[in-house]
Design a binder for these strands. Structure first.
Lengths: 250, 250
DNA sequence: AGCAGTGGTTGCAACACTTGCAACAGATGG
DNA sequence: CCATCTGTTGCAAGTGTTGCAACCACTGCT
């Protein structure tokens, strides 16, 4: 492990929260300001940092690389048009989360027409046991992968409806697998609910899930459920674009 | 400047193009594979790299930070809903580019409904002399800033219609400033054209521009011009949301 | 005007950290 | 079963990093 690189990444994490001055950064790292400055200059020359009146923040080279990376995730370009159509139709927020190496990551997001924005962010990991997309994916995963995943969960409680025991969660997953879709009844934030459905790749394996999310005050769960036909059709369309013929369901 | 950090950034640039193996990366840097591995492990632990079957690529921590950074650019959250509405209306690609420290950067993009995607990418710098947004911003910039900008331009020719001399470009900017909007008549790629209009901040200064872009075969320039009222209205709406009252126009 | 508090810069000496090496485990594939 | 690859480790050598001190330039305050 490289100390210097670790420090550089730590700087990026630090000024990503909000722009930071040289002094703040040096103090945060616990190094002399000249040391911090030399690291910052290297980041700046690479486009990973930029300075604006004495404060440093994320550089645009880094933004461009990250966007490119998402577009390279084979799922994103295929799914995005479908998600936009779904978002248009109801004006609610639409998410797509993908299973990628033992993590479930938001890879696309279409903001709803409401004034409030969901706090989710492309690139961030999903909370598996308190999200519609997380449960939709886990419920349809093959046995060994699911077990591996579940073993790492902590079942932290976020709201009154959060599922907090392995047994209850397995039961919930079984129910989801049976009916083919999942919901989040305010399990992460009590004023937010959603419905979610799985997306399959060419071999029929569940690799992602899409969801329609809304404030409970704006669209309670029973109203979101009415959109399930369109949601599952959207997921089916994405799956078809990925090459799934509906033949296999392992 | 830190050699180690420079190497780390170079690695990121390298595997951003496409996933790379340890051997490739070591060779690219001209270092021993154990050295490359140690840097990679540091990046991986920070979430800036991830490995998938022996090849490395961009990690999700980096994606999340970059998305956060764009959302923190005060312009993006304000403008995005307006751009989406504009994109919906005609089905063409909509861009927003922002002037930020001597560069013009794409900060939002709404893909059109066509099968082809524009090659632009959020986070990337705009080509100022061959793009609608670039010209729209430059034309409405204050004298000193514009001169500083123009001094750095190279006027590279991309297509037959590219403007390649400072004199012709200044003339074009004057015309744009007068009528209040710009166009790109296949000046970067001959099969793509667009119309663009400026966005002003609370103090009346032009800080960004929005454009409607389409394949010439799908929507030639004279057809795009018909959308100008909606485009300028969109830009005015964004400007209003930024606090512009229309009083000042420096 | 003077002062205190910033950010930014530089040369240098000391040494901590990085580097290359070599050797090996383990996986993969012709 | 050999060839080739990634991944890992301990170690010696020395290069690159670090802290320091002193400095300039700028800002805002008194």
């Amino acid at each position: 492990m490289s100390q210097t690189v670790r420090r550089a990444l730590s700087i990026i994490e630090f000024f990503a929260e909000r722009p930071r001055s040289l002094g703040e950064i040096a103090e945060h790292l616990g190094v002399h300001k000249s040391t911090a400055l030399r690291l910052l200059q290297t980041l700046e020359r690479g486009g990973f940092a930029r300075s604006v009146d004495g404060r440093y923040t994320v550089g645009f080279r880094m933004v461009a690389i990250a966007h490119q990376a998402v577009e390279h995730l084979e799922l994103h370009p295929v799914a995005h048009p479908h998600l936009v159509r779904l978002g248009d139709r109801y004006g609610h927020t639409v998410h797509l989360a993908q299973l990628v190496d033992d993590e479930i990551i938001y890879v696309a997001k279409v903001d709803g027409r409401g004034a409030l924005k969901m706090r989710s962010r492309v690139g961030r990991a999903v909370n598996p046991h308190t999200s519609g997309v997380g449960k939709a994916i886990l419920a349809h995963l093959d046995e060994p992968s699911r077990d591996r995943f579940l073993a790492r969960l902590t079942y932290q409680r976020h709201t009154a409806t959060s599922i907090t025991t392995p047994a209850a969660f397995r039961q919930e997953l079984a129910r989801i697998a049976e009916r083919g879709w999942a919901e989040d009844d305010g399990e992460f934030e009590d004023f937010v609910n959603c419905v979610a459905a799985p997306v399959r790749d060419a071999r029929g394996r569940v690799v992602a899930a899409a969801s329609i999310t809304a404030l409970r005050a704006l669209a309670p769960l029973d109203q979101l459920r009415e959109h399930l036909p369109q949601l599952t059709e959207t997921c089916a369309a994405i799956s078809r674009d990925l090459g799934w013929t509906g033949d296999q369901r392992p």
